[in-house]
Structure formats: C-alpha cells, structure tokens
Design a protein around this nucleic acid. Structure first.
Lengths: 248, 248
DNA sequence: TCCGGAAAATTTGTATACATGACTGCGCCA
DNA sequence: TGGCGCAGTCATGTATACAAATTTTCCGGA
C-alpha cells in the first residue's frame, strides 16, 4: 500500500493538499474548482493544478464538469451506503473466485499469518485491544484478500473503491474503540476473518462470498449508528465529513 | 449514452484517435506513450496529448508509469474473462438492489418497454433477427438495468466497466449473427431479459441477482468459444484485438 | 568481463502567454 | 414587459520555452 511520494513534484503536493481539503469537507460537494484561484492559493502554476485535479477525478473525488473544469463530487449518505455495499460485493467476489480457482499455498500462508497476528493484538481482558495494530493488520488482511484470486482486474477495482476515504476497511475502526459494544465487534470481525480464510481454503465459494459480504457490511452498521444516534462521531471517521449533511 | 463530442477540442480529437489505436491493437500492451512523439504525430502540442492520456488512464486503457508518463494497459485473456465476470457481478448487484429496494413504476415501465421492443426485432423465422436494432436495444436494456436501483454509485461503476470495449453488453453480438447456434442464443438472452425484469418486479432479490450474473456470462461463453475454436473472429469483436495474443 | 558512475540524451514537469470558448448582464428591440 | 442578442468578462484550451528528473550510454577501473 505504498502511498505516492508526498511532495516530489508540485503536482503531487497540490494533489495531497486538495485531497485533504476535500476529505475534510472544506470544499462542499458541487464546488467548482477554478484553476487560477487554486494555483494562486497553492503557489504553483495552473499546470500542476490541472494534473492534480485530473488524478483526483480518477480517484473519484472530483467530477469533470460538462463544459470543462472540475467540481467536487457530492457524496450523500446513500452514496456512502452504496459504496460500502459495493465493497462488500467486490470482496465477496474476490473470496468466491479465490475459493473456486484455488489459491497458491504461499498466498494462503500469508493471509493466515495476518490472521494470526491479528489474534495477538487482543489482550487477556475482553476489551483490551491494540487499535493501532489492529487497524494496520486489518488493512493488510483486506489487501491480501483482494489479491487472493490472482486477478489484476478484481484487485484493481477493489483498490479503487477502497481508495475512497470512508470505504477503507479501517475507516470505522477508530470509532470502535469508543464504545465497549464496538470493541466486542472487533472480536466478531476477527472471527469472520478466520472463517473466511477457512471457507476459501475449503473451496466453499458460496460461503466465502457470503462471509466476505457480511464482514464488509459491519461498516454499514457502524455508519447507520453514527448517523442515527451519534452524529458527533462523524468527525472521527476519515472522509465522513465530506458527506452532504442535508440528506442525513 | 451520449459519447463525448468527437472533435470540439484538440484534446478530444487526440483522445478519440488514441483510443482507436489502442482498441485496434495497434499499440500493444506495455507500450510507452511519449508525449512529444504523439504530439508531432497528431499535429498538436503536448498539452492536449497529456489531457487525452489522462482521460484514457481514467477510462482504464492506459496506466500511469511509476516515474511519470503513460503506458498502454495490458489485457491478457484472463483479464477479459475477469472483466466479464465483474460486469456480471455488478449487474447482479444492480438487479438485487433494485428488487430489494423496489423500483418506481416509471422505471419499471421503461425497462419493460425496452424488452417489448426487443421482442419486435425477432421475425417469424427462427433465425430472423434485426441485429442492428437488437444491439442498440440490448445496450438500452443494460443501461436501464444499471439505473434501476437508483444508485449513482452502482450506475457509475457499471458504466466504468462497460466502457471497456470488450466489456460492453453488445460487444459480442456481431458474432452471434454468424452462426445459427449464436442466433438462437439471442432468443435465450431475450428470455433472460424478461425473467430478470419479472424477478425484480416480484422483489425476488436472490433470483434477480443470479439471473443477471448468468445473463452477463453469456459473453464469457462467446469469448471462450472464439479463443478456443474460432480465433479468426477476434477481429469481429470490438476491442478484442488489444488482448495480448501470447497468453492464449 | 563486470560493475560503478558520470555525462549525455531523452522525457516529463512547470510556468506563462495567448487563443478560444462559456457565461453574464446589459441594453436594444419588438 | 419580455425576450433576444451582443458585448465584456472570466475560465479553460493550447502552444511553447525552459527546468528538472529520469534513462541511457559509455568509459574507467577492479
């Protein structure tokens, strides 16, 4: 998961800065981005700004306006739900294909090892979890899962979806540390990790697909909880601030 | 499905020309595209060439090279198979969500009307089909299907996948006209259209998903046939010429 | 022969001036 | 008063010169 070098070129600095502003919700959905204004603001010329915006459009954070130029993409609550649904479907497909096609021994060992390491972050006490480590390893698990079927196509599309800040597998984890019910859900998630790998190893495609879907939909439950009961937690989930507040 | 205006700007002309060359297989996968060379060839400056390449990367036909610049994306036989699988999965999801969430009366009427028009292109004789009209209406059906659940997210991702030339719902249709067995398969496809709409209307999510997946996989059967038995037909499917010939 | 490394060539990155096109608002005409 | 059209303004499209970075080439040394 090597992130692009933060600041080798002006375009990259502009890209990172713009992405930050968008995901923080500083630029509401629909906002038109003007090259000259941004160039002046970022102290570079229009050229790297264009390059940055072009890449952000590729990422899905910007849209190309019909008559040229870019605008910030609007994400309503429903769009976030559907994106999480989409991640579930794609991870389910990765799991099913891995089961159907079979997985090389090395890859299976690799993801099993990640699951083992995830076990280690749970302490003796029920709610005793190293969240930092869990988040990192959880990301590794989902990356390994995407790679299991050995399909560049699937891996690529999954990477695309997961690149949206609120669709990252670890996006909602910081929240889970807050409430004990959430903490317990981590253990449930880990159990799903284990069962998922077992299903794939046993070549049980339908079960693997169902498990992966259900696992991804834990994020949906968290999202629904935040928006219905604890709206203040919106700020704790990366990228959730860019969701249009109007359509709850 | 309004295609972009072919030639309002230099960038658009370059985009269209480059896309043509790539899908025709004139530029093999992995080919590095140099801005200056292309600019000279297309009689424009580097700026619109960059813009065109950037959009083609967004489309999935080009990849960004690690050290800057672009290269033609390689599509192996397996990648085409996986892309068709992916389209099946996404159309299945669109169908399932439409069934689960319910579809506004107007949209249901619209897609039913497309199915009705598709009926009309079948003549009295078994193999008597207006392929031109079938192809156009088939595209309309799949566009309407993508829009059924009312999810911009799903519709967008589906549009992305279908934009790859060999993943278009009508990509393999020209072939089907060649052999009588293929002609019969059109009738099978139309029956699937009908059942799919019925399943969605009846809110049968699982069935709708299965039907949509199976329907999309007809393309996979055609692909397998072409590559195993009638490799000469590769030229008759748009965009299939760009598939790397090496890996069978 | 092989490797390291520096210089040369090539390619992309950036700034900027100018051209072209889109939008706004004003005023003219019906 | 309403609508049409014509500027003027503003934003993007394009070309181009120069800078920086990457890749290639070639030479010297081990």
């Amino acid at each position: 998961m090597a992130r692009e070098a933060t600041s080798k070129t002006h375009a990259m600095r502009a890209l990172v800065e713009l992405r930050k502003r968008i995901t923080k919700g500083e630029l509401p959905g629909g906002t038109r981005l003007f090259e000259v204004a941004l160039a002046e603001d970022l102290q570079v010329s229009r050229t790297p700004v264009r390059e940055a915006m072009s890449r952000l459009a590729e990422e899905g954070l910007l849209e190309r306006a019909p008559s040229g130029g870019f605008m910030v993409r609007s994400f309503a609550y429903a769009d976030v739900l559907d994106t999480l649904e989409l991640r579930g479907v794609l991870e389910g497909t990765a799991a099913r294909l891995a089961a159907e096609r079979g997985v090389p021994e090395a890859k299976l060992r690799e993801i099993t090892e990640v699951v083992r390491k995830l076990d280690e972050v749970f302490g003796d006490e029920p709610g005793d979890v190293d969240f930092e480590a869990y988040s990192e390893l959880n990301g590794q698990f989902h990356d390994a899962l995407a790679a299991l079927p050995g399909s560049a196509t699937i891996e690529r599309e999954l990477a695309r979806v997961k690149s949206l800040p609120f669709a990252s597998p670890s996006a909602f984890l910081p929240n889970e540390g807050r409430l004990s019910a959430f903490r317990r859900s981590l253990a449930v998630g880990q159990e799903q990790h284990r069962e998922l790998v077992a299903a794939i190893a046993a070549r049980e495609g339908a079960r693997a697909e169902a498990l992966a879907r259900e696992h991804a939909l834990a994020a949906r439950r968290n999202l629904e909880y935040i928006f219905s009961s604890e709206h203040s937690m919106v700020t704790t989930v990366p990228g959730l601030e860019l969701v249009a507040p109007a359509e709850k």
